[in-house]
């Protein structure tokens, strides 16, 4: 089942698996609920990340890493590749590692990269959100 405009951002096989769990292919109640739950979860996770970055005292990289991991799990389950990849980077940067989690980087570098990557993740999330809303015929 092809999702229009989802090329690159959604892993079809994974998302297909979710769609297959729908009892009714017209209603798509289960997958819809999952997808919308994810929207909520993503928004709140990004809010937490923003709040952490906005802190005037020392930023908590570990928490950012955990938040990245958390969102990585659910975006992976839905097959939202781009968001998942960015979350993985957030997880790694938060651990003061490079994007692949192989080499050590400094805290400043990590923080800098975190800021841009979180913005990127949000953008990717909003892009895929549009595609999914369209898929579920919700143009609002």
């Amino acid at each position: 089942m092809a999702i229009p405009g989802a090329k690159d951002s959604i892993d079809e096989a994974t998302f297909e698996q979710i769609l297959e769990m729908d009892d009714d292919e017209d209603e798509r109640e289960f997958s819809r609920s999952i997808v919308y739950d994810f929207f909520t979860q993503a928004e709140s996770t990004f809010d937490k990340m923003d709040a952490n970055l906005a802190r005037s005292e020392k930023k908590d990289l570990k928490t950012l890493s955990e938040l990245g991991h958390f969102l990585k799990g659910s975006s992976a389950t839905l097959g939202l590749n781009k968001v998942k990849d960015s979350c993985e980077k957030i997880q790694n940067y938060g651990q003061k590692k490079d994007e692949k989690g192989e080499k050590e980087i400094t805290e400043e570098e990590g923080l800098k990269k975190l800021e841009t990557t979180i913005e990127q993740a949000k953008q990717e999330f909003h892009d895929v959100e549009k595609v999914l809303k369209k898929f579920y015929n919700d143009e609002s």
Binding site: Q17, F30, I34, D37, F38, F70, G73, S74, T77
Partner: peptide, 16 residues
């Protein structure tokens, strides 16, 4: 599973 979405999907998959 701590992530509600994953929990829900797993639950559904296992039920299936």
């Amino acid at each position: 599973e701590d992530n509600a979405i994953n929990r829900k999907v797993m639950l559904k998959m296992l039920t299936g």
